[in-house]
Computed example of a mutant assay.
Amino acid sequence: MKLFTKPKSDEEKLIDGCIAGKREMQHQLYGLYSRKMMAVCLRYAPTTFEAEDIMQDAFVKVFNNLHAFKRDCPVEFWIRRIVVNTALKHLRSKQLLTVSHEAEEVANLSSGEVNLSGYTMDELMAMIQSLAPRYRMVFNLYAIEGYNHKEIGEMLGISEGTSKSQYSRARAILQSMLLRQEEKIKEHVISN
């Protein structure tokens, strides 16, 4: 009786080639995911230069640990986790992740929704980038990466309540920025 073996997917062949040390396969894997992962790095790093450093360190880790990749999840998800963890480690080493452990009161939270349709992704990312590092990290991890506050607390060494507070504050600051932008646009339209 002949056993049927499932043919390998292109992703599995690519991973096997990378593990075997085939440079063209490593280059191909990097090419597939580098743009997406650079976008992740840019969300965390204060400068493009630091984002490039994080990216380089993360892909070194990817290639050094690819043999340990469990093929029960998409490789992109696995790479993204390495990139995020590398970014957090980088920022901790630069002491950019110093988070206040005191409970913060969030004053003047806007309850109104802000229309984002008039903004480009670059404009929105620039606003997120302008947040203080502690707010930016929690906002990115919660709103963009999808971690819950308990996981964020464990990753950053803060309480779940502090994570919630930091996220609320980041959201309030972003809403305030967006409302100021809308007011400037209205004033410009009225004055013309």
Results as ranks from 00 to 15, higher is better:
Glu12Asn: 04
Lys184Glu: 13
Glu24Phe: 13
Trp78Lys: 11
Glu113Gly: 00
Pro74Ala: 14
Leu116Tyr: 10
Asn140Ala: 13
His149Trp: 14
Glu151Lys: 08
Glu182Cys: 00
Val189Ala: 08
Thr5Leu: 04
His149Arg: 03
Ser111Val: 14
Leu66Met: 08
Lys89His: 15
Lys184Ile: 15
Arg136Cys: 00
Leu91Arg: 11
His188Cys: 09
Ser159Pro: 10
Leu96Trp: 07
Leu14Asn: 13
Lys70Met: 07
Ile190Ala: 13
Tyr142Trp: 07
Asn85Gln: 11
Val189Cys: 12
Cys41Gln: 04
Ser117Met: 03
Ser176Met: 14
Leu141Met: 07
Asp122Ser: 04
Glu154Tyr: 15
Glu160Asn: 11
Lys6Cys: 13
Thr98Met: 10
Gly146His: 00
Glu154Ala: 08
Ile158His: 01
Val40Pro: 05
Ala132Ile: 04
Gly112Ser: 01
Gln181Pro: 03
Lys6Met: 05
Tyr30Glu: 04
Glu187His: 11
Ile82Leu: 04
Met1Thr: 14
Thr86Tyr: 03
Glu187Asp: 14
Lys186Phe: 02
Ile185Leu: 15
Arg23Thr: 06
Leu124Asp: 03
Asn148Arg: 13
Ala45Ile: 10
Ile79Trp: 13
Leu3Thr: 15
Ile158Met: 01
His67Phe: 15
Lys61Gln: 00
Glu113Phe: 05
Thr48Glu: 09
Leu29Pro: 02
Leu97Ser: 14
Trp78Leu: 06
Asn64Val: 05
Leu178Pro: 07
Lys164Asn: 02
Trp78Pro: 01
Asn115Gln: 06
Lys184Gln: 05
Glu183Arg: 02
Gln56Ile: 08
Met55Thr: 02
Tyr44Met: 01
Glu11Pro: 02
Ile128Asp: 03
Arg81Ser: 15
Arg71Glu: 13
Ser176Gly: 09
Phe139Lys: 13
Lys6Glu: 14
Asn148Ile: 10
Met137Asn: 04
Ile19Ala: 10
Ile173Gly: 07
Lys61Cys: 09
Phe69Arg: 11
Met155Tyr: 00
Met55Phe: 12
Gly118Trp: 01
Ser191Lys: 07
Pro46His: 15
Thr86Gln: 12
Arg171Gln: 14
Gly157Cys: 03
Ile185Ala: 08
Arg92Lys: 15
Asn108Trp: 10
Met38Gln: 12
Met1Asn: 01
Ser34Cys: 12
Met155Ile: 02
Pro74Cys: 05
Ser110His: 06
Lys164Asp: 08
Ser110Glu: 13
Asn85Tyr: 02
Gly157Glu: 05
Leu29Arg: 07
Gly17Asn: 10
Leu116Gly: 10
